[in-house]
Amino acid sequence: MIRRWAGYVRLAYRPAIQLPYTISWALGLTALFASVTGTVTAWRPDTELVITVVTVVLAMLLMRGLDDIRDLDYDREHNPGRPLPAGLVSERDLLTMVVLGSVALLALNSWRGTALVMLAVQMAYTGAVIAIDRFAGWPHPDRLGLQVAVNLPIQTLLSLYVYSGFLRAEGLGPSAPGIVAVLAVTVGAMCLEFGRKATRRPKPGERTYVTVLGPSGTSLAALAAAVAATTVVLVVIEPWRPGLGWGWLVLVPLVLPAVSVARFARGAIRWPLMPTLAYIPAMYTSFLAVGLLTKGAFG
């Protein structure tokens, strides 16, 4: 089973893509919290953050496994080469991985108070969404808007877990700027959600927002998500204030969705792959740079 798990991680989780995404998420979001929390004057990555990073990385792997179980029927028809429909792993393999991994993550966070609670809530909500989808068929796969509304809290709850870990490490309580930062990155994630499904020629049966918004509408929705998230982050960082000028760095990642929109407008069949995948890690990396430059090792 361990060999099958390893093959699954290599083929379905794709560490070269997922590790930059998940590690930058935990590090960058924590740095953003430090940047927008006025009572934090000095910030350094610590042991608490290491646990947060490991947890986010593994939690996303477990969610990948649950997603593949949920999407098995769809993948059998449209993505038969994926590990589960191809028979490289079984549903039992993935369920065992999810159960054992969940127990391990809860044990790793067992002493972290509110962070443990948020992690447990996130896991429970994710499991409930997958179970209802798998056994009751709700929401219907064609109702993409409802699907997004139901699935979006999964990432929001994981970001709140990261926030809880930050608050514990700093000995602080929650604040409005921190909550707003969580909402901003949730909106930012929609850039990837729309962008990876922006196409002029949907494959037969492909689930894409193009059927509702059209190709240009889907492309512009992806860009709008990135712009909205960046605008909110700028408001809470306030880079126009003395000593916070490095905050303008959060504008840099917007180049990536802007390039994608331009290429798509010039006739590309889909949003270009690399700028689309790179945007979220770039967004979080910009937060990490701002945190280190304003309140961290280089501040």
Rank of each mutant, 00 (worst) to 15 (best):
V236M: 07
A120C: 12
A225F: 00
M118K: 15
P253V: 08
V54G: 06
L160C: 13
A258P: 12
A31Y: 02
V53N: 01
A42I: 09
P272E: 06
S219R: 10
V235D: 00
D133K: 09
Y209R: 00
V54D: 07
T96H: 11
A181C: 06
A42H: 12
V162K: 02
A128V: 14
T22F: 04
V89F: 03
K197L: 04
G127Q: 00
S216F: 14
Y125C: 08
I51Q: 15
A221G: 07
V98Q: 06
M1W: 14
G296I: 12
P80T: 04
V56G: 05
I154F: 09
G245D: 13
N79Q: 13
W271I: 06
V121P: 10
A124C: 11
T30M: 10
F33P: 06
I51K: 15
P141G: 09
L62I: 04
T37V: 10
V53G: 02
G245F: 07
Y209W: 15
A12P: 03
Y8F: 12
V150A: 01
L157N: 12
L293A: 09
W240V: 04
L105G: 06
A31S: 14
S175K: 03
L88R: 14
T208Y: 04
G165D: 01
G247I: 05
L220D: 08
L192Q: 10
V185M: 08
M60C: 07
Q18I: 04
R207C: 02
R3S: 15
G205L: 01
R112S: 13
L152G: 11
A86L: 02
P281Q: 07
A265S: 13
P15S: 08
M97K: 11
V99N: 05
V54M: 15
V56Y: 06
E48F: 14
W246T: 11
A268W: 13
R143C: 03
L146K: 15
R201H: 14
V89N: 03
G65V: 08
A107Y: 15
L61G: 10
P272N: 03
A228S: 15
L11G: 11
R270L: 12
A149S: 06
Y74C: 10
L249S: 13
G247V: 05
S216N: 12
V233A: 11
L61V: 14
L234V: 03
G145L: 13
A268V: 04
P202A: 06
Y279A: 00
F33G: 10
L183R: 03
D46M: 02
P153D: 07
A86C: 04
T52P: 01
L158I: 11
A12C: 09
V259W: 14
N109F: 05
A169W: 08
V261E: 06
L223D: 01
P83T: 10
T55I: 02
V212R: 13
I269P: 02
M274K: 15
S260T: 13
W138M: 05
R92H: 01
G65S: 07
V261I: 15
L144Y: 10
R241D: 04
V250Q: 07
